[in-house]
């Protein structure tokens, strides 16, 4: 039977992260950018869980790290969406091009 090692998980996480990175820089809707950020966060978590399974299975360090990453990413998506709502109320649009005056 075909078996895979940690390298396959790391490669998968790299592909997911690259896809998320592409979305984060190319999308022009704030909600789509936030979705891409979530894909990137998940890729990082997958990396840490995979390495934890092979390198430190007894202490599960990577699992704890990804647990706290999930906390930060949940806080980030909550704040990001609240910000999107606030910007929508001000300019009736969530396109990133309407936020150009934030450049100062």
């Amino acid at each position: 039977m075909m078996q895979v090692g940690p390298g396959a998980f790391l490669a998968l996480a790299a592909v997911l992260f690259s896809l998320g990175l592409y979305g984060a820089v190319s999308k022009k809707s704030a909600v789509m950018v936030l979705m891409s950020l979530e894909i990137m966060a998940v890729a990082v978590n997958l990396n840490m869980v995979a390495l934890s399974r092979w390198v430190t299975p007894e202490t599960m360090t990577g699992q704890f790290f990804s647990m706290f990453t999930m906390v930060v990413s949940a806080a980030e998506i909550g704040l990001g969406l609240a910000l999107v709502l606030a910007i929508y109320r001000r300019s009736r649009s969530i396109e990133l091009s309407t936020m150009e005056r934030l450049k100062g």
């Binding site: 790299a14 690259s18 990175l21 592409y22 820089v25 190319s26 809707s29 390495l51």
Partner: peptide
Amino acid sequence: DWSLSGAVLALLFGSMIYLGIANFDIPVA
């Protein structure tokens, strides 16, 4: 919203990570 520069950035990043993984000796095989 296709973006060529975004695709190039993501491709460069992905290949950089791939090189890193290919040369990375995972302590426990």
